[in-house]
Amino acid sequence: MLTIDQKLRLLRRAGVVVPAPPPVDGAWSPAGDQQNVCQTVAWEQQVDGLFTQHAVERAVRALEQARVSVQFGAQAACATAGGAPPGDVVPASPLLQLQ
């Protein structure tokens, strides 16, 4: 499991705009401390949501690239062999039909 810092680093490297962390109030008080904790938890949840969205988008892109690669390979094999149309050669995997 990745830490918030690791997720932030990966998101920034990917060009995702991440929210700034909440300001930390220098003066300590029970009410202020509770507010800081709540703001920090909300911020971490935002970062987690952005990271989850980023991971899903990457997975979808990878699956799409794999699908295109399989299709292209099937078309190339049919073209060189003079066989059946590509749709008849390689049935689409249910895992690749996410959309």
Rank of each mutant, 00 (worst) to 15 (best):
L95W: 13
T80F: 14
A79T: 02
A77Y: 05
Q75S: 10
V90S: 09
P91A: 07
T80W: 14
Q75T: 00
A76K: 02
Q99H: 14
Q75D: 05
G87E: 15
F72E: 15
D88W: 11
G73M: 07
G73R: 08
F72I: 07
V68I: 06
C78F: 04
P94H: 05
P86Y: 10
A77T: 04
L96P: 02
Q97N: 11
R67E: 13
V70H: 13
A79H: 03
S93E: 10
A81N: 07
P94S: 07
V70T: 15
L95M: 12
G82A: 00
L98A: 15
L63G: 07
C78Y: 02
Q99T: 11
L98T: 13
A81T: 00
Q75I: 03
T80I: 11
S93Q: 03
G82D: 02
A84G: 12
D88R: 12
S93I: 03
Q75W: 05
A79R: 04
A92S: 12
A74N: 05
V89K: 00
P85H: 00
G83T: 04
T80E: 14
A79I: 03
A81K: 06
A84V: 11
S93T: 06
V90D: 10
V68Q: 13
G83F: 00
P94Y: 06
D88C: 15
P85G: 01
P91K: 01
A74L: 00
L63S: 06
